[in-house]
Write a protein that binds this DNA or RNA. Structure first.
Length: 495
RNA sequence: GCACGGAUGUCGGAGCGGUUACGUCGGGGAUUGCAAAUCCUCUUACCUGGGUUCAAAUCCCAGUCCGUGCUCCA
């Protein structure tokens, strides 16, 4: 089944065809490194990581470019506020960016260009746009004249230029400066005293935001490439500005074969924003929960739909994620040295329970692939993994001889690694799964007391003194300890 | 105002012409001294009004409500 994906420009799911066979050029707008990354960044780069992984798994050679915007108004503002050199600020945030993304198991892109390295090409493009009458110089910089290419307006948002001619809801003051028309956007900004600058034919200054991506994508891919991605909010004006700049400069259309935009993250039903005070940085989240659980929660939604982050969602994610890990762990434990038998034929209609289970699992794997081929529907793919988890659990606990049970364990291991591991990226490495859990310092602290109480409770239970046994359990509950009775005796953990 | 999405069971959220989503919650059962954990199992649904069709949650038209964008933003 062919891969289909939703293209923002055409506003529908279309079959994926690359510009050159077997190769994919993918450009995703990166972060402006003036601050730490937040939940929204996590969502965006996990979404494109998933796309990256699935394209690779489907046999494409993906050239993935993701930029850093390392100079802009906010970086300058932040640098002035903190008294820190802007270059130091930028380096620090880029370092943390990598750290955050690594913790979320996001595979690295192939290139991370920084816009300050491309100022010369930006100047070159701007000169060309001026020459072609698509741009003009004003007192405080150079602007792109949107009315010079009206047919390119609204390609991603469907807004007509006539509607916007009326004035965008009266909310454009403050961006006016000396440009001719409120729709025009800055290509080059004249520097104010004390700001970092680059020389240009229009005096000392720095590039506008939109031109950066144009210069970098042009440099890496040429006039056109396959996939352009980014957050939903970047459709306008950023991505439409890119279309204006690139297509007017190169004369080639379209700039990108497919435009992909990920949905936003809300917190408890509200838009995540600094003014609402519900801004979660990845650094903060990492202190509270396993980043792999966060990844699970984000992968457990379609990349285009908005996601409402809340306690319930994380709790569900925690539970379902550990269910998968548990089965993976028992599969790993079952992969012992020794003879491995051939597994019976996978056959849904078989009377042999193992054969039938293998048939079901094969079908689920197919469903997984079908889901991913359908506009990277990881939500559906996760559902298949969860269903398979149940089935794998069943298979792993079947009464089998040694050779068979090794084969089954290996099958389960591979099944999960090829789906939840390689594609969804939610499986930790075998080393991590098999590692002895690190001793919680809190646990060591109260262990003697808990063990003492548990011994008393076991004695009470042996004597069938149930009120006494339950009283001890209540006492343990007050310490925040939950008791689990197993055939091998009681175990305990923190609630 | 314009543009783009969405409306599904207690809830979160898939499906998008005929078939079990998945999970949570709730009911029943197994297990247990009782619980917890685990496993099995059950009920319940497609915003409103028209239309197309043998068949609509799914397609078309109209309406209502909600979200987002139109300004820096993943």
């Amino acid at each position: 089944m062919p891969l289909r994906l939703h293209d923002t420009r055409r506003r529908e799911k279309v079959e994926f065809k690359t510009q050159s066979p077997g190769k994919v050029g993918m450009y995703v707008c990166g972060v402006t490194v003036y601050d730490l990354c937040h939940l929204g960044h996590a969502r965006c780069y996990i979404a494109f990581d998933l796309i990256h992984r699935w394209l690779e798994a489907s046999g494409y050679d993906v050239d993935y470019v993701q930029n850093f915007t390392d100079i802009d108004d906010k970086i300058i503002k932040r640098s002035i506020e903190s008294g820190e050199d802007w270059k130091v600020l930028v380096e620090k945030n880029i370092e943390t960016y990598y750290e955050d993304m690594d913790s979320l198991n996001i595979l690295r892109a192939d290139h991370y260009p920084r816009c300050t390295e491309y100022v010369d090409s930006m100047i070159h493009i701007i000169e060309d746009l001026i020459q072609k009458d698509h741009a003009y110089t004003a007192e405080d910089g150079v602007y792109f004249h949107v009315e010079s290419a009206p047919d390119k307006y609204g390609q991603l948002t469907g807004q007509s230029i006539d509607a916007v001619r009326q004035g965008a809801g009266g909310r454009v003051q403050g961006t006016g400066d000396t440009k001719r028309d409120h729709k025009d956007f800055a290509l080059w900004k004249q520097a104010k005293p004390g700001e970092p600058t680059w020389p240009s034919p229009w005096g000392e200054g720095r590039p506008g935001w939109h031109i950066e991506c144009t210069a970098m994508s042009l440099d890496h891919f040429g006039v056109s490439f396959d996939i352009h991605g980014g957050g939903h909010d970047l459709r306008f004006p950023h991505h439409e500005a890119e279309i204006f700049q690139s297509e007017c400069h190169t004369g080639h259309s379209p700039l990108a074969g497919y435009w992909l935009h990920n949905g936003f993250v809300n917190i408890d039903g509200e838009k995540m924003s600094k003014s609402l005070g519900n801004f979660w940085t990845i650094q903060e989240i990492r202190k509270k929960i396993d980043p792999m659980v966060l990844r699970f929660a984000l992968v457990n939604a379609h990349y285009r739909s908005p996601i409402d982050m809340n306690e319930q969602l994380l709790k569900d994610a925690q539970r379902n994620h550990s269910r998968i890990i548990d089965v993976y762990a028992s599969a790993l434990h079952g992969c012992t040295e020794g003879q491995v038998h051939n597994l019976p034929m996978a056959d849904i209609t078989s009377m042999n329970p193992l054969s039938k289970s293998l048939g079901l699992l094969e079908k689920m794997a197919e469903g997984f692939a079908r889901a991913m081929d359908d506009d990277f529907n990881s939500r559906e793919a996760v559902a298949k993994v969860l269903a398979a988890t149940k089935e794998l659990q069943r298979v792993l606990s079947m009464e089998l001889d040694e050779g068979d049970s090794r084969a089954v364990a290996n099958y389960a291991k591979v099944w999960l690694e090829e789906t939840a591991g390689q594609i969804l990226g939610i499986l930790p490495s075998p080393e991590v799964v098999l590692a002895e859990p690190e001793e919680d310092p809190r646990r060591a602290e109260i262990a003697p007391k808990v063990d003492e109480l548990l011994a008393q409770r076991t004695a009470a239970r042996t004597n069938k003194d149930w009120p006494r046994a339950d009283a001890i359990r209540d006492e343990l509950a007050e310490l925040g300890v939950v008791v689990k009775d197993t055939p091998d005796g009681p175990t305990w953990d923190f609630a």
